[in-house]
């Protein structure tokens, strides 16, 4: 080992570690600022929802830091005693939960068929599913509004569920098929040799092993449906409307309805945020596994 070489190398690492230190500080500072920028909008909405209309009309939400006395839960109290809002909250649940259940069941059944059953035209059918992944739901609005009208389910919760289930299926099939194909073939073979039918294999092997994938799909689909506004805007009426539709009707007078808008928007966020923070691993999984939606 020669002296000069180690000397040069030593110098390099010293320079590098100083640079690295400055670098680290800079990166940390930049990302702290970015994080603040990303948090402020939500924080602002939350604080706005805790102020009266009068306060919101004369000053910004940041004044609560100097005069915290203006904080009140009045908006939430009046929101929760407003039957339109509480009714729409229930409607949101009544739409999002069954949609999620049906998408998971139908998607898992089809996903199994695509992953493990051999039938003519399977590859072509799968390509159709992949094409349908990107179809904008706008193409179905006019015909389905008409069809649901004829069937007498236009304006009902059932109609919205049908719409969401149909448009959730391509993603569900694609995602679950991809997961199911990764299940080791030996497990299925073993079950088959034991004389299990496809139905039993599906229930006793695929569903338990596909648990994480199914959870990912369920969370993704639930959030998607919970947050939808467009489909509900067209396919529900005042009795079946979800929260998003009930809240958007207040938008025309933004300033004077800011109490309903801010508290309502935050109320609509609570469930998704809980689901997100509790299960974010699964949510990310769903996005990673098939992100064409």
């Amino acid at each position: 080992m020669s002296g000069p070489a180690t000397h040069v190398r030593g110098k390099k690492t010293l320079a590098r570690s100083i640079l690295g230190f400055v670098d680290k500080g800079l990166v940390n500072a930049v990302l702290v600022i970015v994080a603040i920028f990303w948090l402020v909008p939500t924080l602002g909405l939350f604080l706005s929802s805790l102020r009266t209309v009068g306060d919101s009309a004369s000053s910004g939400w940041w004044t609560v830091f100097t005069t915290p006395a203006q904080l009140t839960i009045e908006n939430y109290a009046s929101l929760l005693s407003n039957p339109t809002i509480t009714g729409s909250f229930w409607n949101t649940i009544l739409i999002a939960v069954p949609t999620t259940v049906f998408v998971v069941i139908f998607g898992a059944l089809a996903g199994y068929a695509f992953a493990w059953l051999k039938f003519p035209g399977r590859d072509w059918l799968l390509i159709v599913v992949i094409v349908l992944l990107a179809v904008p739901l706008q193409v179905a609005l006019i015909p389905l509004a008409r069809m649901f009208g004829t069937l007498g389910i236009f304006g009902s919760i059932f109609g919205v569920i049908l719409f969401h289930v149909a448009f959730g299926l391509p993603f569900a099939i694609f995602l679950l098929r991809n997961f199911f194909t990764q299940i080791p073939a030996e497990l299925l073979e073993a079950a088959r040799i034991d004389g299990a039918s496809d139905w039993r294999i599906f229930v006793q092997v695929i569903l338990p092993l596909g648990g994480p994938a199914i959870a990912s799909l369920a969370i993704f689909q639930f959030l998607w449906t919970w947050n939808d506004m467009l489909v509900a805007l067209i396919f529900t009426n005042s009795g079946s409307q979800p929260l998003t539709v009930a809240i958007q009707s207040q938008l025309r007078q933004f300033g004077s309805n800011i109490d309903v808008l801010s508290a309502g928007a935050f109320l609509s966020m609570i469930v998704p945020l809980i689901v997100f923070f509790a299960f974010q691993r699964f949510f990310v999984q769903a996005l990673l596994a098939g992100s064409q939606k």
Partner: peptide, 29 residues
């Protein structure tokens, strides 16, 4: 923090941004 907005509805995000960008400097942050 960065990923969280993905979980909320675009309606809520819209209400947030409409409020933030209000014209009066007394109201819009």
């Amino acid at each position: 923090i960065i990923f969280m907005p993905m979980a909320i509805s675009m309606l809520a995000a819209g209400v947030i941004f409409r409020g933030m960008f209000q014209e009066s400097p007394n109201l819009g942050v």
